[in-house]
Amino acid sequence: MKTQKIVIVFGVILLIVLVGFLVYLFALSSAYTLNKPDKRPFFITTKPIVVKGILVPKGTKIIYKKQYFWEKQEQKKPLQEKNIIQIAFAEGATILWGGVPITSIVKFYNSEMNGFTVYADFSSLHKETRFSTLWQNCNDGLGITVEDNDDWSFNTKNILDVESCGVNYRRYYKDDENQQKHLDDLYHALMIIED
C-alpha cells in the first residue's frame, strides 16, 4: 500500500514537471515567433501620412511590435502608433532628417531607453554640413535619445543626446574620451541644424 502511494505521488510529480516543461517550451517558441522580424505586423502607406511626427511618403513600410500570435502580417490600416518599432521608406525613397537623407528609423530595442536609430543614405546627400560630415565618419546608424518617444521627427527640442554613431562611438564607453568627444561634437552640430 505504501509503495503504491509513492508510485502515485511520483507519477503526479512527473506529470506536473512534464506539463511545466511543455508550457515553458510553448512560451519560448511563441516569444520567438512573435519577435521574428518577418512575422511582425506591418502597414504600407497608400498616401503620405504623418507618423511619429514625420510626414512619410506613399509606399512607406511601418512595422509594429507584435501583440498577439493571431495578428496578420500585412495590415489594411495603420495600427496604434505607440506600437511602431520601425519606419522604412520605399526603395529609392528618402526624407531629410537633420538635412541628411534617411532610409529608415528603428526604435531602440531596449524598452528602458527612449529613442531610435536613424539610417542615412549618404549617396543622396546634396548639401554637406558639419553634422552630416561627422555622421558620415561613422558610416552607420545614428542613435538618438529623446524626451518624447512619440516624436521621431527632427525636433531639436525633443532630442536629448546622440547615444551612438555606428559601432565605434557609444555613450556606454564613458571612459573613452575620443568616443565621448565625437558624440558631443555630433550632438552640438545637430542642435544648430535647421531642418
Results as ranks from 00 to 15, higher is better:
Cys138Ala: 14
Ala88Cys: 15
Asp184Met: 11
Ile49Arg: 06
Val106Leu: 14
Phe108Val: 08
Cys138His: 08
Ile87Val: 10
Glu147Thr: 14
Asn110Ile: 15
Phe69Lys: 04
Glu81Asp: 07
Gln80Cys: 05
Ile193Asp: 06
Phe122His: 01
Val118Asn: 09
Ser30Phe: 11
Lys174Glu: 09
Val7Ala: 02
Phe26Thr: 00
Cys165Lys: 02
Asn149Asp: 06
Ile6Glu: 02
Asp148Val: 00
Gln80Leu: 12
Asn35Tyr: 05
Tyr64Ala: 05
Thr60Arg: 04
Val9Phe: 11
Lys181Cys: 03
Pro41Asn: 03
Ile13Met: 07
Asp195Trp: 08
Ser123Trp: 02
Tyr64Leu: 04
His126Met: 09
Leu134Phe: 01
Leu160Asn: 06
Leu79Glu: 07
Glu81Pro: 07
Val50Cys: 02
Lys181Ile: 07
Thr117Leu: 15
Phe10Gly: 00
Asn178Ala: 14
Asp195Arg: 11
Tyr32Met: 03
Gly98Glu: 14
Phe131Ala: 02
Tyr109Ile: 11
Tyr64Asn: 10
Lys2Arg: 12
Thr33Ala: 04
Leu79Gln: 04
Lys82Ala: 15
Leu186His: 05
Tyr24Val: 06
Asp151Ala: 07
Leu25Asp: 05
Glu74Asn: 04
Lys39Tyr: 06
Lys5Pro: 00
Ala189Asn: 02
Leu79Pro: 08
Pro48Ala: 08
Lys174Trp: 07
Val12Leu: 08
Phe122Glu: 04
Leu96Arg: 03
Cys165Ile: 02
Lys181Glu: 10
Ile87Phe: 12
His188Cys: 03
Tyr169Asp: 05
Gln180Asp: 05
Ile16Glu: 03
Asn168Val: 06
Glu163Ile: 10
Arg171Trp: 15
Ala120Glu: 06
Ile54Pro: 00
Arg130Gly: 04
Met113Lys: 15
Gln80Ala: 04
Cys138Trp: 08
Val118Gln: 09
Leu183Ser: 07
Asp195Asn: 06
Phe89Pro: 04
Phe26Tyr: 07
Ser30Trp: 13
Cys165Ala: 13
Arg40Ala: 04
Asp121Gln: 07
Lys77Pro: 09
Pro101Lys: 11
Lys76Ile: 15
Ala31Asn: 14
Asn158Trp: 10
Glu91Asn: 10
Asn139Leu: 09
Val12Asn: 01
Pro48Met: 06
Phe122Ala: 02
Phe43Leu: 14
Asn158Lys: 01
Gly141His: 08
Ala31Lys: 09
Ile54Asp: 00
Thr133Lys: 13
Asn178Met: 01
Ile63Trp: 14
Tyr173Ile: 07
Phe89Gly: 06
Asp175Lys: 10
Gly115Lys: 13
Lys2Thr: 02
Ile84Pro: 00
Ala120Asn: 12
Leu28Phe: 13
Lys61Met: 15
Thr45Cys: 02
Tyr64Glu: 07
Tyr169Lys: 08
Leu190Glu: 05
Val50Glu: 13
Trp152Ser: 12
Val7Trp: 05
Leu14Pro: 00
Thr156Met: 03
Asn137Asp: 05
Ala88Ile: 14
Ser104His: 13
Gln80Gly: 11
Ile95Leu: 14
Lys61Gln: 15
Tyr172Val: 13
Val146Leu: 03
Thr129Lys: 02
Val19Pro: 02
Ile62Phe: 06
Val56Phe: 14
Phe116Ala: 06
Val19Asn: 03
Glu177Pro: 11
Asn35Leu: 04
Trp97Pro: 02
Val106Cys: 00
Ile144Asp: 09
Asn114Met: 12
Asp150Thr: 03
Lys82His: 11
Val9Thr: 10
Lys181Ser: 06
Asn35Arg: 12
Val162Cys: 14
Thr129Ser: 14
Ile105Arg: 03
Trp152Asp: 02
